[in-house]
Structure formats: C-alpha cells, structure tokens
C-alpha cells in the first residue's frame, strides 16, 4: 500500500499506471513502487487537467525523487501560474532543490520562468547571491553560468557588480574558463546595442592588463591567452602589439626557457607576419611538436606546411 492510495486527500483519484508493458519484452516495466505510485497519480491528474494545490505537493514529491523528468516541471509551472501561487515561496523551495541536485538543468529553466514572471518584483541581488552560492559547490556549472548571463541581460546588471564578480571568481581559480567567458560577456555583451567593449581603447587596455596579470600568475593557462587573442580579433588591432607579452614566456633562441606553450603558439603567429620571421616561426613550431605540445604534433605540422616550410624537425629539443 502506498502513501497516496492510503491518503484520504487522494481517494477521489484513480491512479493511472504506466501503459508501458504488455507482451512486448522490450517495453515491459517494473517500477520501483513509491515512484511508480506517485507517477500514477500525476498521470491521473494530468489526464483530468487538474491544477490545484495538491498537485503542487505531488509534483514537489516527484521532483524530489527525480528532478530530471521534464514533464513534471512543465506541469508544475502550469499549475503555479494557474493558481497565482506565491512565486517568492517557489524560489525559496527552488533554492534547496537546486543545491541538492546540482547537475539538473530543468531547475534552471524553471527558475528563469519564475524570475521572469516576477519581473521588477524580483529581488535581483538575492538572485546574484544565490548563484554565487551555487558556484561555491561547482564554480564551472554550465547551467548556472547560462542563468547568470540571462540575469545580467534581463535586469541590465552590466555595471552592477558583475565585473567585480568575475574578478572574485578568478581570484579563487584563475583557470576557471567559465569566469573568463562571463567577463567577456559582461565587457562586450552590448556591442550590438552600441555600448562599446574592447573596441574602446581604454577598455581594451584595461582588459589586456587584466589578462596579463592572470598570465603572470599561471603562464600555462589557456583561458587568458584566448582572451587576449579574442580582444585583438574583436578590435582589429595589430598582433605585433602582443609580442612583448609572448616573449616574456617563450623564446625560440633559448628553447629551454619556454614557460608557456600558448606563448610559443602566439609567437608563431607574430613571427610569421614579420618579414624574415618565417624560419623562426618554423623553429617554434618544431619545439611545440616535439617538446611543448607533442600530442598535437599533426596540428603543428599543418601550421608549418601553411607557412610553406617543410615537415617538423625532430632534432629541435629544449
């Protein structure tokens, strides 16, 4: 006997067991009892299109058992809006649920729907704080970062502490690529609306300085190198301007002193643009293929062939 079949509140409902089953061995099913019982009540209320407070309880129960079932979330939000339920209360419940089920993404879509409906009534700062709490558990959670971006755009938080937030996140882990991406978004996310990002020389300067300081902390970290390359491409500035930065961490003349394969890679691009720099670029590619990034030797060989140079020379050692 189950929790629902014995509850007088549900005695008017004829639960609908799954129709998965029958003679077909591929589809026969033997649900774990609790979950199946609860699902059978959900199927019944959905069939009757019942939208009531007890349905909210039922979906809450099911979500606790299995937050990945998208239909349950869908029906719950339908119910919430139909009943004009207190959405602040819903958010509070969601806080706990999200902390319990970190990998689930339905939660975040549901949250977005609720917060969007709250609009100006929403405690936006509270949302920012909650998201920060989620990052204490997993600072690279993709769904949470996507949600944060949505918040920034929906509530125009561009200049309301977001840049400082990325700084705080990167101070904790300078290799957090998600935080680097968020920084890019906060700085450049309004270009289409005419608010300049790195195309503004002052902002560009500031961002390059920021990335340079991060590189100094951990030279073999892909994210800030991608970031400076991205700035150059987005702003159309000269690659050569990055030469001093690349040379701080990589040298073709003194291969033993290379501290970053990403610096060496950047140096290749800079040297191949210089007149008479091709041979040096080729040497740098040999170093990458043989010593600093050998797993990508085929890629480095391709780059060398693009420069019209021969194949990789294995004699190059650091």
């Amino acid at each position: 006997m189950g929790k629902y079949s014995e509850d007088p509140k549900w005695s008017d409902i004829d639960p609908l067991p799954t129709d998965e089953g029958g003679p077909n061995p591929l589809a026969a099913i033997a649900y774990a009892e609790d979950y199946e019982e609860t699902m059978s009540y959900l199927r019944a209320v959905m069939a009757a299109n019942e939208l009531s407070p007890r349905v909210l309880e039922l979906t809450e129960d099911l979500i606790d058992m299995n937050p990945a079932h998208y239909t349950v979330w869908l029906y719950r939000s339908k119910c919430l809006f139909h009943l004009h339920s207190d959405l602040h209360e819903e958010l509070e419940w969601l806080n706990e649920t999200a902390l319990q089920h970190q990998k689930n993404y339905q939660i975040w879509h549901h949250r977005l729907t609720i917060v969007d409906a709250l609009g100006e009534e929403c405690d936006v700062q509270g949302e920012q704080e909650f998201v920060a709490r989620m990052f204490e558990k997993d600072a690279k959670n993709y769904h949470v970062w996507s949600y944060r971006q949505w918040l920034v755009k929906r509530f125009q938080l561009w200049e309301k502490g977001e840049l400082e937030f990325t700084e705080k996140m990167l101070e904790e882990d300078v290799r957090n690529n998600s935080a680097w991406n968020h920084r890019w978004y906060v700085v450049n996310g309004r270009e289409a609306e005419g608010v300049k990002g790195v195309t503004d020389p002052e902002i560009r300067e500031r961002e390059i300085k920021y990335a340079e300081a991060a590189i100094a902390k951990a030279p073999q970290n892909q994210s800030p190198w991608n970031y400076v390359r991205g700035i150059r491409k987005a702003s159309g500035t000269e690659l050569a301007a990055l030469k001093p930065l690349a040379e701080r961490y990589a040298s073709v003349e003194r291969p033993g002193t290379v501290r970053s394969s990403f610096a060496l890679d950047l140096l290749v691009d800079i040297l191949s643009e210089e007149s008479g720099g091709k041979q040096q670029a080729g040497k740098a590619l040999d170093l990458l293929a043989t010593t600093y990034d050998p797993i990508r030797k085929n890629y480095w060989a391709y780059r060398k062939s693009q420069l019209g140079l021969g194949s990789i020379e294995t004699a190059a050692t650091a």
Partner: peptide, 13 residues
C-alpha cells in the same frame, strides 16, 4: 565565441 568555438546561446561559454 571569441575563441572560435560555440556555446549554448549567444555569449555562453
């Protein structure tokens, strides 16, 4: 994205 790859929506990692 600025790194040449793609995310789930415009601006996403």
């Amino acid at each position: 994205n600025f790194d040449g790859a793609f995310g789930v929506s415009p601006g996403a990692e």
